[in-house]
Amino acid sequence: MISNNKMFGILVPIISVLLGLIAGAIIMLGSGHNPIRGYVALWNGAFGDGYTLGETIRRTTPLILTGLAVAFAFKTGLFNIGAEGQVIIGWLAAVWVGLVIDAPMIIHLPLSVLAGAIAGGLWGFLPGILKAKLGVHEVIVTIMMNYIALFTTNEIIRSVLTDGKTTTESIPQTASLASAWLQGLTLYSRVHYGILIALFAAFLMWFIIERTTYGYELKAVGFNQHASNYSGMNVSKNIILSMVIAGAFAGLAGAMEGLGTYGSISVMSGFTNLGFDGIAVALLGSNHAFGIVIAALLFGALKEGAGEMPTTAGVPTELVDIIIALIIFFVASSYMIRWAILRFKKEEK
């Protein structure tokens, strides 16, 4: 049974991705495009040369972190749909500290990154404590927190960080994650040191969940709150802790955008979608740290590659959004895929 589960854990995502790509091909055929040209453009757009490769890694970086943010909460049985808001708040806090404080890089950069993580953690703390103490469903609270984050951040950019402008000034070099060395390596893409932070965060999540008592407790609460309670674990504390850590991961993702990719923050008319994509990443990566890195790379490549599709194959970039949405459906409906695999195996025997 266990080996069966492991097999499904790997097979279901692979089959889902394949089904998603096949569906994408059918859609391209339906709208009068050549799917082979479309996918070749997608591939070239993601891995064609050093520049696109660098940009793919840049896109992957925050996706790893938001994927971790969703997955970490999920381990404790919580659905963190609020990664979106936590990203925005983390982005704001990181840029804010980057702009306001004047210090040598060795202090300034870690401080700015940390500010992002703490702000995101705070944004996760509120849904966590409401869930733990009052039993309020975290899904709704985090959705509402997303909008509160969006509107307050826009207001702060306009009236506190700038004087009625829509973009802040760029952060000084001492708070920047940008790396001339990495940029030189990739034909001046915007890839930055954040990828190392993201990979370290993935390792950290694996370590916390698999190798520490904290992680054991978090998982236990996720499996059965009552049993955890009877065996002496503090369920409320674990729920809050889980949301705070999840929020911190998402806040880090925001800091990556603020300190690495853009070096500033702008008024947003809508969400960054990093948080929602994080749900897809976590789901496809089976909530496992290693799986998340792979899934984030896949989605990062799809999103980056999509940029090449309109120019060389005439396919609108939104095809990739459709493919990602379908992949989520297929993974979420894995019941169907499992059933099909089992059916298939039975017939073989």
Binding site: I81, P316, E318, A325, F329, Y335
Partner: peptide, 21 residues
């Protein structure tokens, strides 16, 4: 028996994707 929240998130992405596409 899919997770209803996940399915809803996918509906949102899919609708926007199809609409703009």
């Amino acid at each position: 028996n899919a997770n209803q929240v996940v399915s809803g998130v996918a509906i949102n992405m899919l609708a926007l994707g199809i609409g703009v596409y």
